[in-house]
Amino acid sequence: MKAIGMTQFGGPEVLQVFDLPEAEPGYGEIVIGVRAAAVNPTDITFRTGGRAAALASRPGPYVPGMDVSGVVDKVGPGTDGRLRVGDPVIAYVNPFTPHGGAYAEQLVVAQSSVVPAPAKASFAEASTLLLNAVTARLSLDALALRPGRTVVIVGAAGAVGGFAVEMAKTEGLTVLAYASDADEALLRGLGADDVVPRRKDAASDVRNVLPEGADALIDGAALNERVLGAVADGGALASLKGWTGPTERGIRIQPVSSTSAAGDTALLNKLARQAESGELSLRVGDLLPASRAAEAHRRLVDGGVRGRLVLDFANPGW
């Protein structure tokens, strides 16, 4: 089978096509015939060596990718019969395992990380769900806000931010999206009660709308200490990139890592069903042949993409 990976870390040009052995499932594992793999910021960190220490114990090539859709090709021993050959599925993928990441024609994944794909969604759409929706879900859970409270979502037009807007609004929160003027229509369509336009800095921009500050904030742009001023005394901030403070004014910092839920089948299935019902919007920015993975990485780094870039493994362009 063919996979896209690298033997050294660096810019997009290090991504190459490799021929790897056909995937075989072990105990409790599923082989997915990949149809689409979403390109996420975590893939950029993986490619540039930001987590190289986690790969040091095994040889390359190192294959990126944490979000995948496809069909079940093989079912290993010790599985529970929940998934059968031919089923359309999505999976949360850990690229640091010996099996590698989602940029491959076939992928071995623990069955606990695989759930049925949202009905009626294309493979490209389905591939954009799990990593970002899990992050949004865990962020809101960490903040533990009661209905009626106010949450500011920074980076609301991004994939995590968009899901967080929809989830928060469904749960009765007052949602303020911090974003550019150009994204106002998108964010109001997702359910935001108000859009705070970027002008000076997040703290002062939010305080212009909420003089007392927000009850909580989801920091989808890794602004860290620069957004503390937007949070009310005794409030909470969900940090998505591992930042833990220092904090001020009794503000609680809640670091969130989606990898903790990689095998939470019930959560993954719930999110898939929410996408199926239309509660969560699946947004594809563009679909590119898998052979153009380097281009997708360049475009993601350049910014301005709304919705996820997706690699097409059904028509890879080898």
Rank of each mutant, 00 (worst) to 15 (best):
Q106L: 12
K169N: 12
P59H: 08
V89K: 00
N208H: 13
P98L: 08
R137C: 08
G10S: 06
A168H: 06
A144N: 10
G220K: 06
V75E: 03
P41G: 00
R298N: 09
I4G: 05
Q111R: 09
L282Y: 05
P61Y: 03
L217H: 04
T247K: 01
S277F: 08
L228Q: 02
G161N: 05
A266I: 12
E13G: 11
R283D: 09
G229I: 00
R82Q: 05
R51E: 14
V85R: 03
L240V: 05
E29N: 09
V227D: 01
D264A: 00
V310I: 01
G303V: 08
L311G: 12
D193H: 12
Y178P: 14
S113C: 12
T42P: 15
G86M: 00
P289A: 10
K241C: 14
E166W: 10
R188F: 08
G229F: 00
A36T: 01
S260Y: 13
G285V: 00
G10L: 00
A91L: 06
L288S: 13
D141W: 09
P64W: 02
A293V: 09
V151Y: 10
A182F: 10
V152S: 05
P61R: 07
V68K: 03
D193S: 12
E225H: 06
A216F: 11
R292G: 13
A314V: 10
A121M: 07
A275K: 04
D19W: 04
M66L: 12
P21H: 00
V109G: 09
F46N: 02
D312S: 07
A110D: 15
P88K: 08
L145G: 03
S258L: 09
G5T: 06
W243S: 13
A119I: 01
R299V: 06
A230N: 04
V31C: 08
N132T: 13
G307N: 05
A262H: 13
P41Q: 01
A202W: 07
G76T: 04
A133K: 04
N315R: 09
G49I: 04
G26H: 06
V109I: 12
A179D: 05
A121K: 07
I253M: 10
V115F: 04
E295P: 15
A177C: 05
W318K: 03
Q254T: 11
L83M: 01
A294L: 03
G11F: 01
S180V: 02
L210W: 03
L83G: 12
S180T: 05
L223C: 03
G189F: 02
V301S: 11
L145A: 01
G101Q: 04
V154P: 15
N224C: 07
S69R: 07
L210P: 15
G307K: 04
K200I: 14
R47Y: 12
K2G: 11
R306Q: 11
A121T: 03
E166G: 02
R58L: 12
P64R: 01
L271G: 08
A202V: 15
G303Q: 03
E279N: 14
R51L: 15
R299N: 06
I4Q: 01
R273H: 14
L143R: 11
L55Q: 09
M6H: 14
